[in-house]
Design a protein around this nucleic acid. Structure first.
Lengths: 353, 353
DNA sequence: CTGAAAGCGCTAACAA
DNA sequence: TTGTTAGCGCTTTCAG
């Protein structure tokens, strides 16, 4: 393995100049740069990361913390982050909570080892103490999806987007609308789920529409759970809604499959709208609000890298709210007449959040 | 930021002992270990990774190279890898080709910076020169999914599993079976796709069944592309198959949706079988061969870490073939009589691989 | 623009 | 078991 000195010798310069030429820091004459570059290529030399990191204090490595990998939103955001980081010449170290299994370990051990120059937290639900641990790492941090106390976050306005989705259904004439979303998880507030549910509730209230308790469904964001729960509700002739607003496309697809398996047609018998912009929604005709997940990841990287430069750019904790794009496809339509006129059952009650 | 010397002073020992106590290498008396641990905790001290890596030559970091993240197989394998690495106290650095966009950059730059102790290559399709670059990194490497010249790989037997899937359809009485799979990509052999197609072809040949050219479909592994291609084929009354064997569950689901949109029922009018074990396949009733993707990732980590210890375990390049579990659900059944008796069109030809 | 020299914070002999 | 002593391979003042 050739070292920096070998390159220096071959190029006829000092190790310092090799460092400057190869790292891009400091000024080097064009001719010296060329000789160094060629010598490095010939010798198959690449700067050692640990050594550079130790000497300079910067590692050109960003940590990404997330609770899941294989769900659509997370893997899509991750792809955006990975792409932007590679382009910028940064490495990406992945920290996965695996739901909660490694939550503690990641927060206390891994993040403190200053292996990274900064952190991106994707849809993390942290309590105050955990946010404290995160900040104790002293690393510049940017969040993606869902507000994080005191940390600038790239996200959509969950409440407004959800309200828009629900209003779309209401505008079509639906009055019996159910919401499938997430919940406030044990001890950890989950602002994304809460915000989306709040958007649904506020839209229903604004339209003076009742919300049956059975219509406010708590799921785990998987297609299969949404399928099961939607099926159960749809099978009940008394409580059956004419439309679903789902907090994710994966759940919306589950609801569509449930309807089909019950012999209900979408959108004739049931309208479904989601949030995400999942590619597969296209062929199912799923109407949705595209939150450009990949772009959220890209933006987070740019924002974070902007803070790392010699002139730290925007440092404020202000959140950056990305717009969601309404994709009207074929899963939503006006309810059938005989459904609309059906008065809500007398047991109807208003349910607040 | 407290340094190792501060801890040493507080604990009343030397820096070397602090290092030994905290890293777990070398022997330390119980009392010294306790004092060091407490002092470190009190001072909020954690060993610096770059410094440790530089001094010891080991980084406790594994690189994972993959061409995609957001597809089911890749994100699931990645989750298995991440889980096993976290458990072992290793970090995970992600290198994503993004199909081909960063292929060159990752191979030539990123991997050579010896930031990692080893590499896991997931379903990579590399030509000889690229494999050379990979090995030039000098890092212990393990592959996952699809053979890699000279690199021990954890995988299923693509050909055998595909043959089993096809034989299942043949056993049910199907004679008009189409395969949706991948291809040999520009310059890069793609052993996974080739192996699966070979399994299909050999099963058909063994049963003396013809394979129409239109039945051998090349897709990009996405649900939507498989949907479009399956729909087109199914819409052709002359060439329409009675069954699909798909190289992935995501494509199989696309085929099922295509059938439904054409008014065909699964399995009455069309049987579909996939490979993967995708969770969503469950609610669709998709018959498949579960390749336990997550487990492949876990195994790869154990195998790789086994090579890193002081006593390198099994070093041989022998591949480790994992079994696939046959999940019989409701998407496959015997073809309807009137379909079976239809003789293949006279234009039928045998297509070899 | 370039070189010399002094570390960055830890680990690994080697001795004790 | 523990301390001492050299570095690991770069980066970065500081001069020139």
């Amino acid at each position: 393995m050739a070292g920096i000195k070998d390159v220096a010798r071959v190029a006829g310069v000092s190790a310092a100049t090799v460092s400057r030429a190869l790292s891009g820091n400091g000024s080097v004459s064009t001719s010296a740069r060329e000789r160094v570059t060629r010598a490095a290529r010939d010798l198959g030399f690449v700067l050692s990361y640990p050594a550079s990191a130790l000497a300079s204090g910067r590692s050109r490595n960003i940590g990404v913390v997330l609770p899941f990998i294989s769900r659509w939103y997370f893997s899509t955001v991750l792809e955006g982050i990975a792409s932007a980081l590679t382009e910028a010449g940064y490495d990406l170290t992945l920290y996965n909570f695996q739901k909660d299994k490694f939550r503690e370990k990641v927060l206390t051990d891994f993040l403190q080892r200053n292996r990274t120059d900064g952190l991106i937290a994707v849809a993390l639900q942290l309590d105050d103490q955990e946010i404290g641990q995160l900040r104790a790492s002293g690393l510049p941090t940017v969040g993606v999806g869902g507000p994080l106390q005191g940390i600038p976050t790239i996200r959509i306005d969950d409440r407004a987007v959800s309200r828009q989705a629900t209003d779309h259904l209401i505008g079509l004439g639906h009055t019996r609308i159910s919401h499938i979303g997430g919940e406030n998880e044990e001890g950890h507030s989950f602002p994304i789920s809460l915000g989306r549910r709040a958007g649904y509730t506020s839209a229903m209230q604004a339209a003076s529409l009742p919300v049956l308790p059975a219509w406010s469904i708590i799921s785990d964001y998987t297609t299969s759970d949404a399928y099961r729960q939607a099926k159960q509700l749809l099978a009940d002739p008394v409580q059956r809604p004419t439309a679903f607003f789902c907090a994710s496309d994966e759940m919306a697809m589950g609801a569509m499959m449930a309807a089909r398996d019950l012999g209900l047609r979408v959108p004739d018998d049931l309208s479904v709208i989601g949030i995400d912009g999942h590619e597969t929604g296209d062929i199912l005709g799923l109407t949705t609000l595209d939150q450009s997940a990949r772009q959220q990841g890209v933006r987070a990287v740019h924002r974070l890298l902007g803070q790392l430069g010699p002139t730290p750019a925007d440092v404020g904790p202000a959140d950056e709210i990305l717009p969601a794009r309404f994709l009207l496809r074929t899963s939503t339509a006006a309810p059938r007449r005989d459904q609309t006129v059906t008065a809500p059952p007398s047991s109807t009650v208003q349910v607040g959040l």
